[in-house]
């Protein structure tokens, strides 16, 4: 019965991969990688139950955190070309 969720996640992973390869802008790729990360976390949780040893959920936990850090690092890089710059000028862009 974990199959229903697992099949859905695998199909979704394949579709997210299509979007990551197809692009066309860098932001589409970042979005695809972000969704891919979330789906990987879900897949790892379901695989644990599917294989009868759900005590390895820690890996999914680590992934959930690393995925977030990765996305923010990528966006900061794109925005400033730098990982550690102050963000004073932020509010002027939305005008």
């Amino acid at each position: 019965m974990f199959w229903a969720a697992m099949i859905g996640i695998l199909v979704a992973l394949a579709l997210a991969l299509v979007r990551a390869i197809a692009g066309p802008t860098v932001y589409d790729r970042i979005l695809a990688v972000n969704s891919f990360g979330t789906l990987t976390v879900l897949a790892l949780s379901v695989i644990g139950f599917l294989m009868g040893r759900p005590d390895f959920l820690d890996i999914a936990l680590v992934y959930a955190l690393i995925n977030f850090i990765g996305t923010i690092a990528v966006l900061k890089f794109l925005r400033y070309g730098d990982f550690a710059r102050a963000t004073q000028a932020d509010d002027n862009d939305l005008v």
Partner: peptide, 16 residues
């Protein structure tokens, strides 16, 4: 679980 899997597929279709 079934609803979650379905929503994942729907979201991924939207992504594409």
């Amino acid at each position: 679980l079934a609803a979650g899997g379905l929503l994942c597929v729907i979201g991924a279709f939207g992504l594409v």
